[in-house]
Amino acid sequence: MRCLKLCFTVLTLTLVGTVSLAAKAGIVMSGTRIVYPAQQREVSIKLTNEDEKFPRLVQAWIDNGDDKISAEKSNVPFILTPPVFRVESSKSQVMRLVYTKEPLATDKETLFWLNVLEVPPKVGNESDSQLRFAFRIRTKLFFRPENLAIKPENAPSKLEWSLVKVGVGYALQVNNPTPYYISFQSVALALADKKFKSDDYTMVEPNGVQQYSLKNTPSALGNGAQVEFSIVDDYGAFVPLTASLKP
Rank of each mutant, 00 (worst) to 15 (best):
residue 242 T to M: 04
residue 94 V to D: 02
residue 188 A to V: 00
residue 101 K to G: 11
residue 145 P to V: 14
residue 95 M to V: 08
residue 163 L to N: 04
residue 48 T to S: 15
residue 76 V to N: 04
residue 54 F to A: 08
residue 182 I to R: 06
residue 41 R to W: 04
residue 239 V to K: 07
residue 177 P to S: 10
residue 160 E to T: 10
residue 159 L to R: 08
residue 163 L to D: 10
residue 91 K to L: 08
residue 78 F to W: 12
residue 188 A to F: 01
residue 146 E to S: 13
residue 32 T to F: 05
residue 169 G to L: 11
residue 163 L to A: 02
residue 121 P to T: 12
residue 26 G to I: 13
residue 51 D to N: 14
residue 238 F to L: 11
residue 126 E to H: 07
residue 19 V to R: 11
residue 201 Y to M: 00
residue 16 V to G: 01
residue 79 I to A: 14
residue 44 S to L: 12
residue 213 S to M: 05
residue 166 V to P: 00
residue 123 V to G: 11
residue 233 D to E: 14
residue 226 Q to G: 00
residue 161 W to E: 01
residue 185 Q to M: 07
residue 7 C to P: 07
residue 80 L to N: 09
residue 172 L to Q: 12
residue 99 Y to M: 09
residue 25 A to E: 15
residue 39 Q to G: 08
residue 240 P to Q: 01
residue 236 G to E: 05
residue 147 N to K: 11
residue 11 L to T: 10
residue 158 K to R: 15
residue 241 L to D: 02
residue 144 R to H: 05
residue 119 V to K: 12
residue 162 S to M: 06
residue 25 A to S: 12
residue 174 V to Y: 12
residue 214 L to S: 01
residue 192 A to R: 15
residue 125 N to Y: 11
residue 222 G to Q: 01
residue 174 V to E: 13
residue 48 T to F: 13
residue 143 F to N: 00
residue 148 L to N: 14
residue 44 S to D: 05
residue 191 L to P: 05
residue 151 K to C: 00
residue 232 V to R: 05
residue 169 G to S: 10
residue 38 A to P: 13
residue 63 D to H: 12
residue 215 K to A: 01
residue 105 A to P: 00
residue 188 A to Q: 00
residue 135 F to A: 07
residue 113 W to L: 03
residue 99 Y to S: 07
residue 25 A to W: 08
residue 36 Y to V: 04
residue 138 R to I: 04
residue 177 P to C: 04
residue 227 V to H: 05
residue 164 V to F: 04
residue 234 D to I: 05
residue 4 L to H: 13
residue 151 K to D: 07
residue 168 V to T: 09
residue 74 S to H: 09
residue 57 L to N: 14
residue 222 G to D: 00
residue 243 A to G: 04
residue 242 T to W: 03
residue 142 F to N: 11
residue 184 F to D: 07
residue 30 S to R: 13
residue 75 N to K: 14
residue 173 Q to L: 06
residue 135 F to Y: 07
residue 158 K to D: 04
residue 129 S to T: 11
residue 77 P to D: 12
residue 247 P to Y: 01
residue 101 K to H: 10
residue 144 R to P: 03
residue 44 S to H: 08
residue 57 L to R: 13
residue 216 N to A: 03
residue 16 V to A: 07
residue 193 D to N: 07
residue 85 F to W: 08
residue 99 Y to L: 12
residue 204 V to T: 08
residue 16 V to K: 11
residue 173 Q to A: 01
residue 146 E to K: 09
